[in-house]
Design a protein around this nucleic acid. Structure first.
Lengths: 123, 123
DNA sequence: GACTTATATAAGTATATATTTATATAAAGC
DNA sequence: GCTTTATATAAATATATACTTATATAAGTC
């Protein structure tokens, strides 16, 4: 399923917002999102499956619980696709600013990925 | 139709990419996108309708032609939604940078929107 | 005024997916 | 071992939407 199809569903968007706050058990998500959208546990379980299989979320087991965490990869892809349009919607100056910031970020990310110690901070 | 549902279709994403390069007549879009995706003129016309009605594109007439232009509003909404996750995927420092840039941009946008010269789309 | 060009709309259909209820799996507690 | 708790899967169904072909609208050309 394409990144944007995944994001097309409001339940999945809500789940992602929750996961942005931190790891959550399936049951917690069912509690919150199920109440907000009035849908069943299997419905949410299937949305979680979509999020797993499309790379938006990872899971780890802890006893019977399944703890879901956000994987930012696909969201970064969306951000990258928006680059097509930033030059359009920003003023030229804004765009330049944005591009400079992105470039800096990308260079740092590249540096991290080459670092065998996988350090969290990079200047 | 929700912003993300609009972006869920690959034909519409391609049309938006084209419009990011500048205004295009419906016929040009049919020529390019129709060939790439092997779909008919009415199919593309219907996608253009979706883009119009969801605010991604504006149209103006020129003789029989319909000239489509990108409206960045909904794409900015997507960008804004991604803010939920930037703190997650950036390092703290990166995020701070991004937020500062966004703040500056938003203040400028607000200034533009208060400008009485602002143009609105045709009914 | 008929014909051509450019685009949109109508009607019908096929397919994808979001849901439901029912059931399976699997770990924990007693 | 049986029951409870937590989660996933199966099967069936409803709905939305992305197409198709056919046709309408409207401006330009001869």
């Amino acid at each position: 399923m394409h990144v944007f199809d995944v994001l097309g569903d409001p339940v999945r968007r809500r789940i992602l917002e929750l996961l942005a706050e931190g790891e959550r058990a399936s049951g917690e998500i069912v509690g919150i999102v199920g109440r907000e959208f009035a849908i069943s546990q299997p419905a949410i379980s299937q949305h979680l499956k979509v999020l797993r299989e499309s790379g938006f979320a990872t899971v780890r087991a802890e006893a019977q619980r399944r703890l879901y965490a956000l994987d930012p990869g696909p969201l970064r892809q969306v951000d990258a696709w928006l680059d097509h349009f930033r030059l359009f919607w920003d003023t030229k100056l804004d765009a330049l600013e944005t591009e400079i910031a992105r470039g800096k970020r990308q260079r740092r990310v590249a540096a991290r990925e080459n670092d065998p110690h996988e350090t969290r901070k990079a200047g």
